[in-house]
Design a protein around this nucleic acid. Structure first.
Length: 297
DNA sequence: TAATAACCTCGCAA
DNA sequence: ATTGCGAGGTTAT
C-alpha cells in the first residue's frame, strides 16, 4: 500500500479533540470539499490537493506534495483543531437547542479558510443555494486555477483575485455568476490591487472589518460576517441568514422582523465570543433536520 | 428609518 | 421530459 505509506497521520483523540470531517466539510462554510468513493474527502488548500480521512489513530493526510509534519500543522490550523470543542459544548450545552446540535454533530468545527476564496464564495451565495454556489466556484477554479493532482484526482487551485479581476464582469456572467458577476469582479479588483488587504484585517476591531468589507458592492453585513467567521478568525461573528433567523424566531421567540443588528446584539449577549459556533451549529442542525442535504460527489 | 421590488440563473420538486 | 418555484442577500427606489 504505497498510498498509505505516503500518508501522514495526525493523532486525534475524539474524546478530547473531537473532529468530524463530514459535518465540518459539508456544513456550508466551504464549497470545494468532496467525498470520493472510499469515503475520503479531497479539497484544495492553498497550492496543495489534500485528501483527508479518519483512521483509528487519527486524521490521515495525503497530499499532492509530500505530507510532512509542517503540512499537518498547517491543516490543523485550517481545521481549527486548536478550538476547545469540549469546552464549548460544556459552556453552551445548557441550551437545549444547542445541546441537540452538539449531540447530532459533536465534531463539527469552524474552519480557518483562505480569506479571498471565502469572500468570493459568499459573494456568490447571495440568493443562491449550496449546490449552485459549489458548482460556480468549481467552474471558476477549473477555468482560472492551476492544476494539482493526487493519486489520479485532478483538481485546480481556487481562482486568484488577479485572474477574476482580469476576467471581468461579462466573462463572469458567462460562467454563471448572474447578477453577482459585477460584485465578484469588483471585489477581485479591490483585493488584486491591494486596496483591500484581507490578511491585514485579522487583528482589527470588529466594526472596522465589517466597514472595510461592506465597502464592496454586493457585500452586506451577512456576507461580511461569513468571511469574518470562516476565514478571519472572528469567532464572535454571527451571520444570521434566513435559516438562523427562522431558528431565532421559532425556537428562541425573537420577533420575526428583528433587524440584523438586533439579532447580532442578542446573540452577543447570550453567547459572547461563542456566537459564531452557536450560529453554525444551529444553522446546520436546522438545515439538516428540515431539508437534509445529500453529501456526495 | 422601514418596507418593497429587482436582480441572473440554476437546482430541484412536481 | 418540462415547467415553475424559490434560493444561505444586497442594492436601489
Amino acid at each position: 500500500m504505497s498510498l498509505v505509506s505516503q500518508a501522514f497521520v495526525l493523532p486525534i483523540d475524539q474524546q478530547t479533540l473531537p473532529l468530524d470531517l463530514t459535518s465540518t466539510l459539508a456544513c456550508g462554510q466551504c464549497f470545494r470539499w468532496r467525498v470520493d468513493g472510499d469515503g475520503a474527502w479531497n479539497g484544495v488548500v492553498g497550492r496543495d490537493l489534500v485528501r483527508l480521512s479518519m483512521g483509528p489513530e487519527g486524521l490521515i493526510i495525503e497530499s499532492s506534495t509530500t505530507p510532512t509534519a509542517e503540512l499537518a500543522e498547517s491543516l490543523a490550523g485550517y481545521l481549527r483543531l486548536d478550538d476547545d470543542l469540549p469546552g464549548l459544548h460544556a459552556r453552551l450545552g445548557g441550551d437545549p437547542h444547542l445541546r441537540e446540535a452538539f449531540d447530532n454533530y459533536p465534531g463539527l468545527r469552524l474552519m480557518r479558510q483562505e480569506p479571498w476564496e471565502t469572500l468570493a464564495g459568499f459573494i456568490l451565495s447571495s440568493t443562491s443555494n449550496i449546490p449552485r454556489i459549489s458548482k460556480t466556484v468549481e467552474l471558476l477554479s477549473d477555468t482560472f486555477g492551476d492544476e494539482v493532482e493526487l493519486d489520479g484526482i485532478r483538481r485546480r487551485t481556487f481562482a486568484s483575485a488577479e485572474s477574476l479581476a482580469e476576467a471581468g464582469e461579462q466573462r463572469l456572467r458567462e460562467l454563471g455568476c448572474g447578477f453577482r458577476a459585477p460584485y465578484l469582479a469588483g471585489a477581485a479588483e479591490a483585493v488584486a490591487t491591494g486596496r483591500l488587504p484581507l490578511d491585514e484585517l485579522r487583528g482589527a476591531p470588529y466594526e472596522n472589518v465589517v466597514g472595510r468589507l461592506t465597502e464592496l458592492k454586493g457585500v452586506g453585513e451577512k456576507i461580511a460576517d461569513c468571511a469574518m467567521l470562516f476565514s478571519l478568525d472572528r469567532l464572535e461573528a454571527f451571520p444570521a441568514d434566513r435559516w438562523v433567523r427562522k431558528v431565532l424566531t421559532d425556537l428562541y421567540d425573537l420577533p420575526a422582523n428583528i433587524s440584523y443588528d438586533g439579532a447580532r446584539e442578542w446573540a452577543w449577549e447570550r453567547w459572547g465570543g461563542d456566537a459564531g459556533y452557536a450560529n453554525q451549529y444551529l444553522f446546520w442542525n436546522a438545515r439538516q433536520s428540515t431539508r437534509p442535504m445529500r453529501i456526495s460527489q
